[in-house]
Design a binder for these strands. Sequence first.
DNA 1: ATGTTTCATTCACCTTTGCCAACG
DNA 2: GCGTTGGCTTTGGTGAATGAAACA
Length: 968
Amino acid sequence: MRTRAESKRQKQSPGTLADISEEAVGRLLKRANKRSCSGKKKHDNISSRHDSIDTPEIGPNRNDKLDVDPRDKWNISEVEGCNRDALQKTAGEERLDGGSIQNASPENVNELNDLDWEDGSIPILDSTTNLPVTIEIGETPNSNRRKPARRSSAEDKELAELVHKVHLLCLLARGRLIDSACDDPLIQASLLSLLPKHLLNASKVTQLTATALYPLVHWFQNNFHVRSSTSAERSFRLGLAFALETREGTPEEIVALSVALFRALNLTTRFLSILDVASLKPDAGEYEIFSQDASRLSKGIFKSSTLMVARPNKASVSPVKSFSSNAIDNICETSQRGSCKSWDSYSACDITQSEGSSVAGDLDNKMSDSLACEAGHDTSEGCLTKKVQGTKRKGDLEFERQLEIALSATASVTLENKIQSNASDLDGNSMDFSSPLKRVKRIVSEESPSSQGISTAVGSRKVGSPLYWAEVYCSGENLTGKWVHVDVVNAVVDGEQKVEAMAAACKTSLRYVVAFAGRGAKDVTRRYCMKWYRIASRRVNSIWWDAVLAPLKELEAGATGGMVHMDKQQIESSTEHEKAKTSRELGNPNQDVVPGDAILHGKSTLEVVKEYGKKIDIESSVNNSFVATRSSLEDMELETRALTEPLPTNQQAYRNHQLYAIERWLTKYQLLYPKAPVLGFCSGHPVYPRSCVQTLKTKERWLREGLQVKAHELPVKELKRSVRLPRVSDPEDDECGGGNYEGTIQLYGKWQLEALHLPRAVNGIVPKNERGQVEVWSQKCLPPGTVHLRLPRVFYVAKRLEIDYAPAMVGFEFRNGRSHPIFDGIVVCAEFKDAILEAYVEEEERREAEEKKRNEMQAISRWYQLLCSIITRQRLNNRYGDSSLAQTSTDIQRNSRLCAQAGGCDGDRQSLVCQQEGTHRAKLDASSAALSEDHEHVFLTENQSFDDDSLVLIKRCHCGFSVQVEEL
DNA sequence: ATGTTTCATTCACCTTTGCCAACG
DNA sequence: GCGTTGGCTTTGGTGAATGAAACA
């Protein structure tokens, strides 16, 4: 339990952006590598699976629907991501090799059996003939009856989270890159040179308002157009220059140009982007990645050909790719390309990029491949492998079918998009404020009569979704100044409330809206997202995210900073204005919102401001006026929005809502206290602030937190105990009754508690529980006057000194289906602490000395045993072995003498190793040794040498005999 | 057609204080 | 005879998350 908590803490520990980034990427790569190893093991299985899928004639009963276990999909995608070459080889070669289920190992067969193959009728196959095989498919493609999908494991979730984080970091980096390109003086100067003279005055207004921006935006929209995609690869800065020259570019470039223009006009401007990241949840990725890429085909955060990183090797590991391949998991990746002609023509319209142009390029290639297969589904037999549909939603299938129709009927949606935008130019309809959704619908209705019904389907994808816009600081707005939303692509000014609806219409998730300026970034999602509860669970852990953004936020504040002077009344009126606006916007006939301050859960605006003022750098002066930075004011505004979120209209939203709760969704360990104020009603259920939801615990649980229930407090809630009570004296009862289910669990709330008062230790006696222990969950649980000594073997000392002590129980370990207490050290009265520690040190020294001595004795004894066995061996060799060894007999005697010494010379803490110095040497010296049998060796100091590495001292006698002495 | 609610299912987390035979 | 060691039965209830069907 502790370990888990620690790891959580670790996860949340803030660091520098580089650290965080490195950690996330490192962990991801580690995981990818780890998985690639396990992936390799499964490689054969997977390729067999591919083969079996690709070769229906020899595989088991086929159906057009194949439910693949999400885990299997992960594995496939991982192998793809980690070793694409290998997979391609597998997909290609093994098919040629006749790789099939027949070749599969029994293990593979088992795994294949595990797949949910469905029955279909197969005609009897004559293996000798090569006749085409017809498979009767039992079900129509539409009847995608779902097999209960296996839920993602914790490991999958962790990986998805890592991918999500890495993707976020990548998009943050991308945003910073664009932001810095917007500061390019050359681009800014070029833009200014294009601007008509009368528009140059925009910057000279002292109190800038949103209306003042309209002419600029209109001019910009008239002069710069969105191009569907770029075919050339270039850096973003070059791309921007190119877009400036041709006056058309990707939405990203167009918005960046607008930011550059505003900045050139000395307007404080930020570049905003929706970070449309991979899903935080494993299985949701399929849909989301698909749709993201669909959007990028036309709009393109990655689609733009900018190289964010150096061109990767094709075979390199790409976690993002691996993830996306999970999303699409396209089995016809390599084999079906040729058959997907319909998309090829589409890709000729420079929609896709060249292979391996970048990680992002790969993403889109994959995307286009998958789309190709889908597009060619009806017409091409080759694309029979579109089997992952089983896990797709009905809406997705519907969309895919309609997309097919659309693609066959029209060249491409994106082209039309372009045509349409051109058309609108020709019309001179510069005041077109229609939303992307409307535009898409119009394209379809005007230009594609054959593709009836496509409008909603295409519109329901992310095509046309606003992913980028600018924010200009208008000091003349809203008393204290305001960041005004400016979307030059859709020609919308001050339309922050429209963004969510527009994005929702295009199925873009508004999870992260980040503003970039001065190479920094700030999360401003709150300004654009009115239904926070919908995205909260799909955002990454806020502690991590805040830590990542902290350094960037400072940079951003530095770049957009400026001081704002205002007085108390201004704050009041400005926030009231905001509040009123919010209530107006969110007025809902189905819900009775309690007027007034209920929406702020009883806090007045000034309170919120003051509360927040503690956190931010608002300087209060004597005359009740404030000087605040723009950044801190914005923080305040966003915080206010966070606290004034409208009440959701559906009950489900209250389950995990951060601000509100309804009684219905409380768990059995929760209670509303106090049961007021009622903020409103949802379907007749009163809505309370989340802060009123109290977690209840048992007395014992509170005890762990160093709290105890006050005297005379009754439990606020009693639950039926359903846990089996411990076996009573008669075990037969248990068998007959099947367990005792009785008693209640008494729960108490926080308000019923007080600090723990444990009996004080008196006369050196430690107060213990009924088991003779002290439960040390925290320092608060220690009886007064006692200390916890977490030292191993310390209880021996206490016992020896006859001091009263209690074993300290610090937790439980669940082992063998049973809980076992974990003890760590002892609890003793504080007055004995020093005495025990002193004795402990002595005791430990003594113990260490004893242990050392024992080790030495053991070492000597072992050396002795070893040498004796060598001697015995040599003696045996001498007597029974080869005669050539006879000459060693004299050495044996020497050795035995030395061994005798070794056994006895423990005084100098050395053990002697008798060794001949190489056999050849021994042989050379054999004669001389034989001559001087009675010679007594003398080891002179000048003849000895010491080897530093092995710590061996070699002593030599003048007769040539040497002894190695090893220091212990 | 879309959004919401209800219900069933699955998974992961929390639970939480021996016994007995073999051996030295 | 006594103390120590290590293996043994790997629980089962609960809530959260999820998806499908029903319903609005």
